[in-house]
Computed example of a mutant assay.
Amino acid sequence: MSAESLSGGCQCGAVRFRLTGMPGTSSVCYCRMCQKASASHALALVSVGEAALEWTRGDPCWFQSSDAARRGFCEKCGTPLAYDAPDGLALSVLAFDHPDAVAPTIAYGVEGKRIWCDGIPDLPERHSLEDPDAVSFLQTLVSHQHPDHDTETWPERKS
């Protein structure tokens, strides 16, 4: 993993961040607390490590999820953004504009892994537009999600 500057943010664009320098360890956690915080089977996090973190638009809200840790999220859209514990601050991998740049290298909390997680790679796959029952609906969608890059303002102003 190498990085000079990585940016990211929430789904609605109200909160954006920039990480400058080399982040720390990237991991997934299967513990029940991370599952509930992400509403998913695991939460991928990358430690800020020695990098410098700047919140470039807005600030996360915080929920004290345990005696030792708090979790940052966007107050407007609910996107999970951060995990702050005694060993340091970590950011949600999937909140990065280019999440593959901070791909996880280790898994924690495996005692909480759901019994079906290991079977996910073996599930039948298809692209979104290969579902004939959904094509007409999917082709009409207009995304209001912030794009995967920094913007001067958001939402963008129509001229």
Rank of each mutant, 00 (worst) to 15 (best):
S47Y: 00
E50I: 04
A52C: 05
L53A: 07
W55N: 05
T56N: 02
G58I: 01
P60L: 04
P60R: 02
C61V: 14
F63M: 10
S65V: 12
S66H: 12
D67R: 11
A68K: 09
G72W: 06
C77A: 01
T79E: 07
P80A: 07
P80I: 08
P80L: 02
A82T: 11
D84S: 05
D84P: 01
A85Q: 10
P86R: 04
P86H: 11
D87M: 04
D87F: 06
A90D: 05
A90S: 15
L94M: 14
F96W: 07
F96L: 03
H98C: 09
P99F: 11
D100Q: 15
A101V: 02
A101L: 12
A103M: 11
P104T: 01
T105R: 14
I106P: 00
I106D: 03
G109C: 07
G109F: 07
V110K: 14
E111H: 03
I115K: 14
W116L: 01
D118K: 04
D118Y: 04
G119C: 00
I120W: 08
P121Q: 05
P121Y: 10
P124G: 12
E125H: 14
E125R: 15
E125Y: 12
E125Q: 15
R126D: 06
D131R: 12
P132Q: 04
V135R: 02
L138M: 04
L138P: 05
L141M: 10
V142I: 14
H144Y: 07
Q145M: 13
Q145H: 13
T151V: 14
E152Y: 03
T153L: 01
T153Q: 09
W154Q: 08
K158T: 13
K158M: 11
K158Y: 04
